[in-house]
Design a protein around this nucleic acid. Structure first.
Lengths: 385, 385
DNA sequence: TGCCTTATCTGTAACGTTACAGTTCAGAAG
DNA sequence: CTTCTGAACTGTAACGTTACAGATAAGGCA
């Protein structure tokens, strides 16, 4: 080992002239500064520098200050590959996107929320889509097997979700947008789709509609069940008819939703109130009814779930209930980071309440309906989770 | 060096029982297989295995086959951190998203296209948004300074784009969605916004509209200029009035677009034909005109740029021109990968043609308009690039 | 004086990969 | 028989980081 000069003046190597730009003080001009660069400037061992920047207890206060100062001056940034190789920590969050989510801003809104939450952490966001024809397990297995992330954000959660089961078994951190019905608790953030459907149905009934129909997410995802429960509960409680949903859901191609609804209205006793859980679906639905000569607010009413601004400017205005996907993304990312930091799962399960945006005229018939005063309480608790 | 058994039977260590699952043949049970794992099984040096998997010329054909077989059997996946540390290659593409792109499916559609193109490459997609209040250069500098990607996808390109200048100076691979006016050629993929505006204006004029107004992207981005040129060229060529655009653009909040248009229609000599380059903006525009008592197809006509399915189901149907953002994402990613592989820049500059989706009734007045036969040719060449 | 403790700092090894500079050996050339 | 050549393989070192097991010096204590 070559002995190093330990005198006080050695610290002079760190330039006092501030504001020369982040890379100005680097020892080798073209190269990125590393711990070694700092060590040489500070006349310290690489290990000491590493520990100092980590605020380790075995390093003197003065040394820490000096090292931090130099690191800042020369614009040191830890090399992710080095850290990852040594520690296994990737500092990556993986968002697994389903192909259905291509529609509208789902992904983008979520991504901005996630990015905001990760903004001043070391995490990068990697988007890992899986494709229609592929196995939903494939991206999950890939991430686990290659160790390419520290945590996963899932959506389109199912009651018995194979992905969740696998990740739980592996002890791998993840968070779901949506709930499962698995026995083992796990982190999630969910929109209260029970309350959404309940409030939507209630609104329609208050406006005098009695034959209600819902376009829900496809069977299989958990929130389909929640939404149907809220829908049927309100219909039952307030004395309306919950009509069997036709063979369409929010994944159905908009053209098919439109034509199906046109046909439906030609049959006897068609619905007069609709609930729709997707922006584009709601536009297609309205178009189908217009094809059949019907206008919202006249022959029928509609309450739609809104996640973008596409429904803000229909004429006539329609009632919507807003799900804030940007906030959802933010929450999901925060929960996941907390899960990675080993916070107890029980504190990582949250539900987002719907924001009512009722924009149509007040109900013409303000006839009192059933015992609605306890609806919010029940709406928020579709089940024990 | 410990001598190793070089006999033929050593290869037997690779299990003949296929289909035992990817990780079944690993030597150490819980650990990820590495080159060392393969080397031990194959009785070879780690270097040899590395070269064999890279199809290096100094390795025998039989050895290569054997190594590949073992790698497949035990489910070997190169460790990205190791490769990255040693070679500097990150195998990461970074998509820099602007906050304006939160609106609608811009990001999501692009992301799916990009993912498709990267699907069977080693590249991962990292999304790096920058936030409204921040410097647009910040995410770029971060990526360069930390070496966290092999290439960057930019959007909202400006004529004198500082980001491009910087990346060119650094020699860092990137591709733009949109063109710049910088002297140094660089890879891009752009939608032909000149042709879009030209065709849209032509359509409106063919339908008898003479007072045209456009809601374009904000000044500053290059495609604002392209679009305005196409718009004004068509108006001039076919004898219509290109009205000064009010102080709104596609970034304006939809509510403001709506109220501005309502007011505008109350003034004397209002426009009777509109071009709108955003989905949501078009909905807000239509709403504003409806507020003023006007119906599309009657008091005015509209041609909108469509990038989602939100405009598919308006009633009455409106004319749109489609920009396929998923295909755009695919193209951008392909171009970027080719740029990273050092293909000449000249072959990495492409323009996507608009897809006309005119859905309204044929023009009532089929009066012949100016010399329209050369419009396509001119439309595709807004400038020398 | 010697020994122990504490505070502070240190080098070595390892993570998985690949560039590079060998090494080995069979067979051809002299 | 020796020497050379080339094919096929090998070990070593390095990328930047951190866990771990020292090392050093100052001071306390007997």
């Amino acid at each position: 080992m070559a002995p190093r000069d330990k005198s006080e003046t050695a610290a002079r190597a760190a330039p006092e002239t501030a504001l020369r730009g982040p890379t100005a003080g680097a020892v080798e001009p073209g190269k990125r500064p590393t711990l070694k660069t700092i060590a040489e400037i500070a006349n310290l061992g690489v290990t000491t520098v590493s520990r100092a920047l980590k605020d380790g207890p075995e390093i003197g206060e003065d040394t820490k200050k000096r090292v931090r100062r130099i690191a800042r001056d020369i614009g040191y940034r830890p090399d992710r590959a080095g850290v990852r190789l040594r520690t296994g920590k990737t500092n990556v969050i993986s968002l697994v996107l389903n192909p259905h989510e291509e529609v509208m801003g789902y992904g983008t809104s979520m991504i901005f929320g996630i990015s905001q939450a990760l903004r001043d952490t070391a995490y990068h966001l990697v988007v890992t889509p899986h494709f229609l024809e592929g196995d939903p397990m494939e991206p999950i297995r890939y991430i686990i097997e290659t160790g390419s992330a520290d945590g996963i954000i899932l959506s389109r959660t199912r009651p018995q979700d194979e992905r969740i089961r696998y990740l739980l078994e592996m002890g791998f951190p993840f968070v779901c947008h949506g709930r499962s019905e698995l026995a083992t608790p796990h982190p999630f953030h969910d929109f209260d789709n029970y309350a959404f459907a309940f409030e939507a149905a209630k609104r329609l009934i208050e406006k005098g509609r009695r034959r209600l129909c819902i376009i829900a997410p496809p069977e299989g995802v958990t929130y389909h069940n929640h939404m149907m429960m809220g829908f049927e509960r309100a219909a039952h409680q307030f004395g309306a008819v919950a009509l069997p949903a036709p063979s369409i859901n929010t994944d159905t191609a908009p053209e098919d939703i439109r034509s199906t609804l046109r046909q439906m209205m030609a049959e006897s006793d068609p619905p007069d109130g609709f609930i729709c859980s997707g922006d584009i679906s709601a536009l297609a639905l309205t178009a189908g009814l217009r094809d059949a000569g019907m206008t919202p607010g006249r022959e029928f009413d509609l309450v739609a779930k809104q996640t973008s601004s596409a429904l803000d400017h229909t004429t006539p205005a329609i009632d919507t209930i807003f799900e804030d996907l940007t906030a959802t993304g933010h929450t999901l990312a925060s929960l996941l980071v907390r899960r990675i930091n080993d916070e107890p799962v029980e504190s990582l399960q949250t539900v987002r309440e719907p924001e009512l945006r009722f924009r149509t005229a007040a109900p013409a018939t303000s006839a009192p309906i059933g015992q609605s005063q306890d609806s919010r309480t029940q709406g928020s608790q579709p089940e024990q989770v």
